[in-house]
Structures are given as C-alpha cells and as structure tokens.
C-alpha cells in the first residue's frame, strides 16, 4: 500500500471518528449531567435526517434542511424529556434502558407510518458535490471536509460552552452536586430540558449531515447508536474530551482495521481467504478495543468514578 493511500485512509478514519463524535457528544453530555442512559438517541438522529430530507425536498435548500433538522430534533428531544425522560432521572439504569428502548420502537414505527417504508432522498449541496485536491495530491470529497470542519467546530463550541458560559457552569455544577445547584436557585428541571434538547439537536445535526451521504431510512439510528456507545464508554461516560478521543480511536480502528487486517492475514494465508478472515476480525475490532480498554481502565480513558 502506498504512503499516500495510507494517509488518505487515516484521513477517512478521522472523518468517521468526527462523525461519531457529533453523535456521541450529545449522548455523553446527557449522561454526564443527568446520569441518564438514552438508547433513543439514535432515534433523534433519525428524526434529524428525516426532517432534513423532507425540508430539502420541499425547499431545495441544504442550509434550511440543516436548520430544520436542528429544530425538529431539539423539539422532539424537549417533548420526550418533558413527557417521559424526566420521570427516569431518579430511576435505576434498568428502567432507563427499558423506557428508552420502548421509545425506539415508538419513534421507528411512527416515522415509518408518516414517511413510508422506502428510503428518502437527501443529497449534498451542489457546491460541495465534488472532490478537492489536498496538498500532496490527495483528492478528497469536499463534503467530508465539511463534516470534519463541523465536527471540530462543535467540539470547540462545546468546550467553550462548558468552560466559559453561565450555562456551562451550571452544567458542571449539576454534574458535581445536583441538590446543591438546586438549592442555589438554579431551575434544575429547566436546565435538564435544555441540556436534553441540546444533546438531541446535536444528534439531529449529525443525522442531517450524515444523511446526505448515507441512506435516510427507518432504523438508521441504531447501528450508529451502538457505535456512539462504544465511543463514550471507551472515552469515559460523561466526558466530552473522552468522547472526542474515543470517537477518533473508534473511527481509526474501524477504518484502518478494515483496510489493514486483510493485508495482515495475507502474510500467513492465501489472498482470498485472508480477505475473508481479515474482514471478519475487522468487524469485531472496535468491540475488542472497547473490551480491552474497559479491562484495563474500567471507567474508560477519561472517566471518573461512577
């Protein structure tokens, strides 16, 4: 494999990681602040993608589609928080898992009811449709560069939000001591709704951005959800920094595993079966990574005590 191709594959891995970060950020934020494990996060991702596809079909504008995705996912998040989620904060994880599993069923079949069983159409805007040439001669899709840019911007924005703003202070205080900030006069239930809607909006944004280059269909959220869980568990649940590092690790492992493992096994066995064995191991690679991390650091790379 040429160095140039390897660099391009590393770039692909980073890009996949950034995509996962968009999804994982909301999930880890919600867990960090409210201690809630939300399986329905993938459904909010799907809501974002469907809202974007419907808006793009009606208006033809990709920017409007992104805005619609943000609004729809945030609204869905807020509604779910007000009706269901807030009853779960003081429950054990088991109830949270079950209730949000139930929400997945409702969201998925509800979406299918409204939009039908066929995948929807959503494409990248014409201005970003082609590749651009990077220094060194790598041709890289412009839209994927946009995703990397957006992901980094979101990461930076979240760091600033948490470390520099009043809301961020409340969020950090809420993570540290829930009763105390309530006693200090912060409207905790409003804060929770806000954080949940913010997490949902991030998922919706991810869904819309990714929906333009993937299939917009019912059930699209669950595979990504599982990957996002792997990410936040590796990084340490509740840690934005952990989610970022974990996302890049998972992105790189998955992409480079798929590329390099078949070549690695070709050193030992003949080409065709090496590809099959390599592909099989690659499909398990991120779970092996996750198990490995947890065995040595039971609370993830950047996690505190649970």
């Amino acid at each position: 494999m040429s160095t140039l191709l390897l660099i391009e594959q590393v770039l692909n891995g980073l890009q996949f990681g950034v995509m996962l970060f968009l999804m994982a950020a909301g999930l880890t934020l919600i867990f960090g602040v409210m201690g809630l494990i939300n399986l329905a996060h993938g459904s909010l991702y799907m809501v974002g993608a469907f809202a974007a596809a419907a808006t793009a079909a009606a208006t033809g504008s990709f920017v409007l589609a992104l805005v619609a995705a943000l609004i729809a996912a945030a609204a869905a998040g807020a509604i779910v928080e007000l009706t269901v989620i807030r009853r779960l904060y003081d429950r054990d994880h088991l109830d949270q898992v079950l209730a949000t599993f139930a929400l997945i069923l409702v969201f998925s079949e509800g979406t299918r009811w409204i939009f039908g069983s066929f995948p929807l159409y959503l494409d990248v805007p014409a201005a970003l449709a082609g590749p651009v040439t990077l220094p060194g001669g790598i041709e890289y899709p412009a839209y994927r560069l946009l995703i990397i840019g957006m992901g980094l911007a979101v990461a930076a924005g979240l760091f600033l939000l948490i470390s520099r703003t009043r809301i961020g202070i409340q969020i950090r205080a809420g993570e540290a001591d829930r009763e105390m900030i309530g006693a200090l006069g912060v409207d905790i239930s409003k804060l929770y709704t806000l954080v949940f809607a913010l997490g949902a909006a991030l998922a919706g944004l991810a869904g819309a951005l990714v929906g333009a280059i993937q299939s917009v269909q019912v059930g699209m959220g669950e595979p990504v959800l599982i990957l996002a869980f792997v990410v936040i568990v590796i990084g340490g649940i509740g840690s934005i920094k952990g989610a970022f590092v974990g996302a890049l690790l998972v992105g790189l492992t998955d992409t480079l595993g798929g590329v390099l493992l078949p070549e690695f096994f070709a050193l030992f066995t003949e080409a065709s079966s090496a590809k099959l064995i390599g592909a099989s191991v690659a499909s398990m690679a991120i779970y092996i990574l996750m198990a490995g991390v947890l065995i040595f650091k039971p609370t993830g790379l950047f996690g505190g005590q649970t």
């Binding site: 990714v210 299939s215 590329v259």
Partner: peptide, 20 residues
C-alpha cells in the same frame, strides 16, 4: 476483492481502495 461489514454505512476507505 473487498468484503465489507453487513450493514456498513460509510465507504470512504473502500472507495479509496477502488480508486487506487
């Protein structure tokens, strides 16, 4: 011969392989 994961949604790595 490229074998992908069942249900895979991102093909950037495979596309780079195809191009090369």
């Amino acid at each position: 011969e490229v074998y992908t994961k069942l249900g895979q949604q991102d093909y950037a790595a495979e596309i780079a392989q195809i191009r090369a």
